[in-house]
């Protein structure tokens, strides 16, 4: 049975902008006429903890959360978080990882080491893994904080999402003064896949 719903899992560290990313994707799916559900995280976990936002769209969507092993795309804003949520990905799914390391408390305090080889491990398990230096690219566009939108560009290219609708969504959801930087960041993200 082919899947009727597209499942995108967006993971990161509280404060990295998973919420904005999910809202951009959801907005586009709505423009495309799909039924859409998005599950967000508010409250305690937002304070620097591991966060996950889930976007589902298709003809008809029931559950707001993605079944383990069903996600088509895992979009990770941080390397460790990609590993943490990898079991939610379907076997032939795709992982897009920002080449960004944010040390969690046990690493910062020197109790354990950050697993440097984590991306290698993921790549061995999931052939379809893309490691993107989104923070650096965003910096070149004018602000490292637009890294999430670089990744959105990568995802849009991979998932074949319509460019005009994506740009509309970015215009309506990011703060006015950041629109140009974010549109540039989106374009650069798209280019990575095109090239």
């Amino acid at each position: 049975m082919s899947k009727q719903v597209t499942d995108i899992l967006i993971v990161g560290v509280g404060g990295q902008g998973t919420l904005l990313t999910s809202r951009i994707l959801a907005d586009v799916a709505v423009q495309m006429g799909y039924d859409v559900k998005v599950s967000e995280v508010h409250g305690m976990a937002q304070r620097g903890g591991s966060v996950v936002t889930q976007v589902r769209y298709g003809k008809k969507v029931y559950s707001p959360i993605i079944k383990k092993g069903d996600a088509d795309i895992l979009l990770a804003f941080e390397k460790l978080e990609a590993a943490r949520w990898l079991d939610y990905l379907k076997p032939d799914g795709m992982v897009i990882i920002n080449d960004e390391r944010v040390d969690p408390l046990p690493v910062m305090s020197g109790k354990v080491k950050y697993p440097e080889d984590i991306v290698d491990k993921i790549q061995k398990l999931i052939p379809n893994t893309r490691l993107i230096n989104a923070t650096e690219i965003a910096g070149q566009c004018g602000n490292t904080r637009a890294a999430n939108v670089v990744l959105v560009g990568v995802l849009a290219a991979v998932a074949g999402l319509p460019v005009k609708e994506m740009e509309n969504a970015i215009r309506s959801l990011v703060p006015e003064k950041a629109i140009d930087i974010n549109l540039k960041a989106f374009e650069e993200g798209m280019k990575i896949i095109a090239n």
Binding site: V13, G14, M44, A45, Q46, R47, G48, G49, S50, K67, K68, G69, L80, E81, A83, R84, W85, L86, D87, P91, P104, L105, P106, V107, K111, V112, Y114, P115, I118, K121, I122, L125
Partner: peptide, 18 residues
């Protein structure tokens, strides 16, 4: 629905913090 890859077991946790 057991964990297919189980990487989660070998990586440090990320509790929320101030």
């Amino acid at each position: 629905n057991e964990d297919r890859y189980g990487l989660v077991k070998e990586i440090p946790g990320r509790p929320p913090l101030l």
